[in-house]
Amino acid sequence: MRKPTRPAIYGVMAEFDNPTDVVAATRRAYEDGYRRIDAYSPYPIEALSEAVGPHKERLPLIVLIGGIIGLIGGYAMQYYVAVWNYPLNVGGKPLHSWPAFIPITFETTVLGAAMAAIFGMLALNGLPEPYHPVFNVPNFALASRDRFFLVIEARDPKFDRDATTGFLRSLGAQEVADVEH
């Protein structure tokens, strides 16, 4: 059962055969007031991700927190083992010999940060995602080869099926197609 508020289609997709056009078109779409837009490219284009609009990156903070947890956790683990759980006299050195703890602490910091980076990235991207409507457009398979795509979602307040399709055509798209749900 479809919810009544749900638009009839997911959005419209414009296809470009070169990176310059898709960047220019994305900028135009943003300048024109569209906000729920996304672009697809076979390889990363820095200018393209900027053109889609400003987005706050939350991943760095997650990685920092992961690193700090690894740092504290690694040091605490060694402190617990060396001082409380299994105290050993090593060369007459104090039980809490911090220089010896540093290498492991460094490793657990890297581990924590790396784990946070991988899983944080997956979570923020909403991955794994088994279904996405953009794949309903047959040509979209070329997004991993040599084509570039710009999608304006129907959820965008400014979206109008005919007007948006016409707008995308005016930006020099090779083809403009509806994206079914």
Partner: peptide, 12 residues
């Protein structure tokens, strides 16, 4: 720097 320190500190 730390590698040098750690080794010399451990060896004592």
């Amino acid at each position: 720097s730390f590698s040098q320190f750690l080794i010399i500190w451990s060896g004592n």
